[in-house]
Amino acid sequence: MTSSPDRIRATFDAAAKRRGAALVTYVMAGDPDLATSREMALACAAGGADILEIGMPFSDPIADGKTIQGAGERALRSGTSIASCLELAAEVRRRTPAAIALMGYVNPVLAYGEERFLDACVASGVDALILPDLPPEEARAFRSAAAARGVKLVFLLAPTSTPSRVAAACDAATGFVYFVSVTGVTGARASLPADLGAKVAAVRKRSPVPVVVGFGVGTPAQARAVGKLADGVVVGSAIVQRIAQGGSRKARAERVRRFVASLSRALGR
């Protein structure tokens, strides 16, 4: 069984056609509970997100800043498992045509069973996987298992990546390359590095797949600036913060939808 159609490619093709970057949004599954996080993901889609990242919580999230750490802790407290993340993805899939990417750490995937997890991704309509602590070198078996099922893999690059690392990630990535804008963990920043444009351009030149930029993008103005440099823009912590502000499920969903719509407009739509 393989996942079909290729929503990731279609998303970037459509974005390129309208000469704008794709909007990628992040919501943690189970933050603060599974049903609310489902509505938040759908609110992102309603606000104009092209790719919905759904976070899978992990007890020891070394790549995440305080905001997403907090979301992960809430999700684990509400009993979120890998199975419930997959279930959430399946529900979101039934209600939106947007592409879905699961993002998380590798240990829960190993515990679930790599092949079993990939099969479940296909069954749930998950298009891509982002595992920040699984670099291409450690992912050889996983890459062929994912390719056999048509599940796209996303690999990350950072400002510290050397040309050979850039080549390795670009060659391994099947969905898109995720360029980490800052030397640091996830979380909105007041400003982005001055040399971001040059770095992203170098990666885009090398990469056969689209290149998105994330970590530190938290405002429409930043999204607009980054959208001019990359094929896609990822906004995570700024959305998680808006969910964490509380209120009814409906009020949170409206807050998230409006914010995502403002990001979408900033990208020229």
Binding site: P132, D133, T162, G184
Partner: peptide, 14 residues
């Protein structure tokens, strides 16, 4: 063993 770390650290480990 191996190296299961965020990309930012790989060059430093190299």
């Amino acid at each position: 063993g191996g190296r299961y770390v965020p990309e930012t650290l790989v060059p430093a480990l190299d």
